[in-house]
Design a binder for these strands. Sequence first.
DNA 1: CAGTGGTCTAGACCACTAC
DNA 2: TAGTGGTCTAGACCACTGT
Lengths: 238, 238
Amino acid sequence: MTKYENISKEMKHRIRSDYYLADEPIPNEFDLATEFGCSRMTVKRALDVLVREGFIFRKQGHGTFIIKSPIRDSEVSVISEENLGFFNLVKDKIVSSKIITFEIEFPSETVAKYLCISMETPVYHIVRLRIVEGEPFVIEKTYMPSTLITGINEDILNTSIYNHIKENLGLEMSGAHRKIRACKSTELDQKYLECQADDPVLEVEQVGFLVTGTPFEYSFSRHRYDRFVFTTVATTKK
Amino acid sequence: MTKYENISKEMKHRIRSDYYLADEPIPNEFDLATEFGCSRMTVKRALDVLVREGFIFRKQGHGTFIIKSPIRDSEVSVISEENLGFFNLVKDKIVSSKIITFEIEFPSETVAKYLCISMETPVYHIVRLRIVEGEPFVIEKTYMPSTLITGINEDILNTSIYNHIKENLGLEMSGAHRKIRACKSTELDQKYLECQADDPVLEVEQVGFLVTGTPFEYSFSRHRYDRFVFTTVATTKK
DNA sequence: CAGTGGTCTAGACCACTAC
DNA sequence: TAGTGGTCTAGACCACTGT
């Protein structure tokens, strides 16, 4: 844990616990640097994280203020930078899985393209239903190069592929590119998500990357439209 | 335009125009600092932008590499940090608008909450259909405090509210909190988006902020499901 | 004008990678 | 071990805000 991460964490905690008054600026960067015993650049870097996550905003020449936006208090949602795996999404909930498909095959042209592999590299093709608190939540269709992500079995599929990648394979995920769209539900959706023929689904298409830059998964997550909202924070300043 | 923004821009240009080989690391931070005549910290900051936007990734102890992911090449989409206004979304396309509702009213409790105003502060309530290349694209329902965003008229509604806010009012937008979900289409959607009763819509709920931290708009954009995809880049590293 | 955040420097040391 | 990115410093000067 670096110094700036600690400061980020502490400041987030202070904001969430109303340590600072929401209508006044938080202490300036010089004072925070003194308080935390570090240089001003380190405080700045720590606060950059909070800006990106939508906790605070800065006003040049005036100060740094807390954003009190109720839109951040979502039930089940993705706040952009934070979590990749499904388990992070639904922490503190009871989760189970049902394996619908578990095959190994040669990839289609599209799958090969997104995973940056040849069409001769076999991939896992996994379809799982994820159940949260006893209710069907999402169908995940995942393709992963079997040469990279090795040792997949049903036990792993019933818990977390991400944990397997991290704990057993020692690989680290760095990020993902995602597309989010609304779709009509298919018969597969209706059967497993237990939704009506005219219910839509929210689909998240994702290419996940390791810290080595290698794509390791290409997936489609189809969510029940009434149980999932995707949340993001956008800032214009770089 | 600051030094690091210039370097970001130049590096993005180089990557897009294949100036660097995609299979080799780009020059290290020390060499780039020499080339651009700046300190290493400034290069680092410039490259941070490209990391967040999904152009490159870094591998400590090894180098910095280009991400070649085809998922970024979307037609009409939102890449997280970049654009807030509708016009930025569909640059280089022919856009027109149809005003469906243009009223001033007292806000509901919800609208007041999201805009951080009292229920006695009047708000504009605007519903517009946006047409791209002759095809209905999105219905935008927008609430804005009339005391903050002044001087709205039909001319402005037919072009861009964002331009009005920027050019005429001299206000600057800083970011937004968004929720994205799939919905069933309503009769209003079907009528104006010219979609079928069983077509879903992709809804983006948004609270937009000025650089002063003040919420200035609370809006719902309902997109035709077959004409819009929301794209984002997520990274686990802060 | 004083106070704040924004940018930038020139260097230091550390952590990690590949060879 | 050499080379890379990661963190951090102690300052400097600039740009902007409110009074």
